[in-house]
Simulated assay, not measured.
Amino acid sequence: MTVLLVALGAAIGAPLRYLADRLVQSRHDSVFPWGTLAVNLAGSFALGLLVGMPAGPALSAALGTGFCGALTTYSTFSYETLRLAQEGTRFYALANIVAGIVAGLGAGLAGLLVAQAITA
C-alpha cells in the first residue's frame, strides 16, 4: 500500500514540477535556472511543513516521499549547475549552488517553523 501512496504523490508532483519549472523559466530571460530553484524551494518548504505537522506514515509517504520527492529535483539542479560552469557562466553556477543549498535549507526551516506555529 505504501508504494501506491508514493506513486500517487509522485504522479502529481512530477508533472507539477515540469509545469511550474517551465512557467517560471519562461518569465525570465536568463541562463540562470529560476524554474528549478523555484520548485526546489517550494518542495523544501512543503517538506519542512509536513515534517512539523502530526502526519502519519501513509500521509508522509504520499506527500513527503512521493509528492515532494517528485516535485524537487537534485539531478536537474546538478545538471544545470554543471552546464552553467561548462558554458563559462561560472558566477551563475556558483550562485545556483549557494542559492539552492542556503535558500533550500532556509525554506525547509521556514516550513518547519510554520508547522510548529500552527500546531502549538
Rank of each mutant, 00 (worst) to 15 (best):
residue 93 A to F: 12
residue 110 A to W: 08
residue 83 R to V: 06
residue 92 Y to G: 00
residue 73 T to Y: 08
residue 64 G to L: 00
residue 90 R to G: 07
residue 79 Y to F: 13
residue 96 N to Y: 02
residue 80 E to W: 07
residue 82 L to H: 14
residue 103 A to G: 13
residue 77 F to T: 08
residue 69 G to N: 03
residue 98 V to M: 12
residue 48 G to D: 06
residue 77 F to P: 03
residue 73 T to I: 10
residue 105 L to Q: 09
residue 58 A to K: 06
residue 65 T to A: 10
residue 92 Y to M: 09
residue 46 A to R: 00
residue 69 G to V: 04
residue 63 L to C: 11
residue 59 L to M: 13
residue 107 A to E: 03
residue 44 S to M: 06
residue 72 T to N: 06
residue 105 L to G: 15
residue 65 T to K: 02
residue 103 A to W: 02
residue 56 G to Y: 03
residue 52 G to S: 13
residue 46 A to T: 10
residue 100 G to K: 05
residue 100 G to C: 12
residue 47 L to S: 05
residue 67 F to V: 01
residue 68 C to N: 01
residue 95 A to W: 03
residue 75 S to T: 14
residue 59 L to K: 05
residue 58 A to W: 04
residue 100 G to S: 15
residue 101 I to M: 14
residue 95 A to Q: 12
residue 85 A to H: 13
residue 46 A to W: 01
residue 90 R to E: 12
residue 105 L to D: 08
residue 99 A to I: 15
residue 56 G to C: 08
residue 55 A to S: 14
residue 61 A to F: 06
residue 63 L to A: 12
residue 58 A to Q: 11
residue 58 A to P: 02
residue 72 T to I: 09
residue 65 T to N: 03
residue 58 A to D: 14
residue 46 A to P: 02
residue 45 F to Q: 04
residue 66 G to H: 00
residue 55 A to R: 05
residue 60 S to W: 03
residue 99 A to R: 03
residue 50 L to D: 07
residue 76 T to V: 14
residue 95 A to E: 05
residue 111 G to Y: 07
residue 61 A to Y: 01
residue 78 S to H: 10
residue 45 F to K: 01
residue 84 L to V: 10
residue 73 T to H: 04
residue 52 G to T: 14
residue 69 G to I: 07
residue 58 A to H: 08
residue 49 L to K: 02
residue 106 G to F: 07
residue 79 Y to M: 09
residue 70 A to W: 00
residue 101 I to D: 10
residue 78 S to P: 03
residue 83 R to M: 11
residue 60 S to F: 06
residue 78 S to C: 14
residue 93 A to Q: 04
residue 83 R to L: 11
